[in-house]
């Protein structure tokens, strides 16, 4: 089996506070892996390591090794724009840019390509492809000039996924992508993830254990910065090896 992301003894500190302790994980290619655990256990921190967005907060110290697509991302020759192009990210609150739907989809591509390198027909086609693959094209094809922030939350979240696609990422990181959505929106996003899972590697952080069980093939349980258990979802939920995992998945706390 091939792995998209591998970490070796990854430790991370925010100032004096150690948020990740010797995390060793292997995220397999082309399927959905979910990260579960109580609040503050380092799930989001781990997720944000993989495209190095947590460096922006300052005061962050990282030790250990993270290999994304076979390349150590802390090597000196790694280009952050290229890394983030390959590793897309979807946030907890849908955060489309306050510009039109059309421009939102093209934004990522525009910052990675020289100015005026796309013709109008090319860009039209890219927008149509991206929106079609997230099932938004039918709803929005007449409203492409609409401000993206005025869409429904569910559509906004799908648009946030759609704008990653023209960049042709290999991995998509999702930080509680459904926590701001209602049941219908959650269903729609989950369905979308399952359809896209063959093409992209998904890593999602979720507090919703039912969701982790529904969508993911493998599941990682974290507790106070440590990776406790990483197994097939079914096995992790039904026959947890570790007592902390058992306590959490059977909702004895957390």
């Amino acid at each position: 089996m091939n792995y998209s992301i591998e970490t070796e003894n990854l430790s991370l500190w925010y100032g004096d506070f150690q948020a990740l302790i010797d995390v060793n994980s292997k995220i397999p290619d082309g399927q959905i892996t979910s990260l579960i655990g109580p609040s503050g256990c380092g799930k989001t921190t781990l997720l944000r390591c993989f495209n190095r967005v947590n460096e922006r907060y300052g005061n962050v110290t990282t030790k250990g090794k993270i290999e994304v697509l076979g390349k150590n991302i802390y090597d000196a020759d790694v280009s952050l724009p290229e890394l983030r192009k390959a590793v897309g990210m979807v946030f907890q609150r849908p955060n489309p840019l306050p510009i039109s739907v059309y421009e939102n989809v093209l934004f990522g591509l525009r910052i990675h390509s020289p100015i005026r390198s796309m013709t109008r027909t090319e860009s039209d086609q890219i927008v149509e492809e991206a929106l079609t693959s997230v099932f938004l094209w039918e709803d929005l094809k007449d409203n492409l000039k609409m401000r993206a922030t005025s869409l429904q939350l569910e559509q906004q979240q799908k648009l946030c996924i759609a704008r990653l696609l023209p960049l042709k990422p290999k991995i998509i990181l999702m930080d509680e992508p459904c926590s701001a959505l209602d049941a219908k929106g959650t269903g729609a996003v989950e369905e979308l993830m399952e359809i896209l899972a063959g093409t992209y590697t998904f890593l999602i952080v979720t507090h919703n254990m039912a969701q982790a069980r529904r969508v993911s093939k493998e599941c990682i349980f974290m507790f106070l910065g440590e990776l406790i258990e990483h197994r097939e979802t079914q096995a992790l939920f039904e026959t947890p090896e570790h007592s902390k995992t058992a306590d959490y998945v059977q909702m004895r706390y957390g």
Partner: peptide
């Protein structure tokens, strides 16, 4: 969120500043 999403799409600091 505007900065975060722009950075996460791979923009450099200059692009985030000038474009958003």
């Amino acid at each position: 969120p505007i900065r975060e999403s722009t950075y996460a799409l791979g923009a450099n600091r200059w692009q985030v500043l000038t474009q958003q």
